[in-house]
Simulated assay, not measured.
Amino acid sequence: MATASVDVKELSSSYVFVADVPGLRHTDIKVQVENDSILKISGERKREDNLSDDIKYVRVERSAGKFLRKFNLPANANLENISAACQDGVLTVVVPKAPPLEPHRPKTFDVPVGSCSFNTP
């Protein structure tokens, strides 16, 4: 199985995944979110099969085959606005952060006190 090297960066407003996918077109790559918490990047590098029978490989160093990388997304990932783009053999996936929840603030308020008489037995 081939692999794709990935850098993961955290910015103030997003998480950025940058993967090396040399020789692949954007149509060769699949980006998915599984179970609302896992970013999945997959694809396949194909070897040139259109060679004639009289050519044999002397050395093969470039990996070929399917690749798959999975990353756990943080709880504050905004899954609705993920974007991905592939250019010059580099895939960039941007996962925006959801706005922080309002922290719980204790409230102070007045309770009106009325006058009444309690009948006790």
Rank of each mutant, 00 (worst) to 15 (best):
P100G: 10
K66L: 08
V16F: 05
L68T: 00
D54V: 05
V58E: 10
I41W: 01
I38A: 15
S83Q: 06
L79Q: 01
Y15G: 07
I41M: 09
K40W: 03
N76L: 07
K70P: 02
D28N: 13
N50C: 03
K40N: 11
A19G: 03
V6N: 10
A2R: 00
L91M: 09
G65T: 05
K40I: 13
I29V: 15
H26Q: 15
A64D: 02
N50K: 09
M1C: 00
I55Q: 10
A84Y: 05
S13W: 07
I38S: 12
G114V: 04
T3K: 11
S42Y: 05
D110V: 05
P100Q: 14
L39M: 09
P103C: 12
V95G: 07
N81K: 12
A64E: 04
N81M: 08
R59V: 15
D36W: 01
V21C: 06
K40A: 12
D110W: 01
E10D: 05
R62M: 08
S13N: 14
V111H: 09
F118L: 15
T120H: 06
N78E: 09
P99D: 09
S12Y: 01
N50T: 04
V18L: 11
C116R: 07
T108Q: 14
L39W: 06
K40P: 02
Q32M: 12
K107T: 12
C86V: 12
S37G: 14
T92Y: 11
N78F: 02
S12P: 01
E34K: 14
Q87F: 12
L11P: 00
N78R: 07
K70Y: 02
K70Q: 09
F109M: 06
F17T: 04
H104T: 14
G89Y: 10
Q32E: 15
S42W: 00
V33G: 05
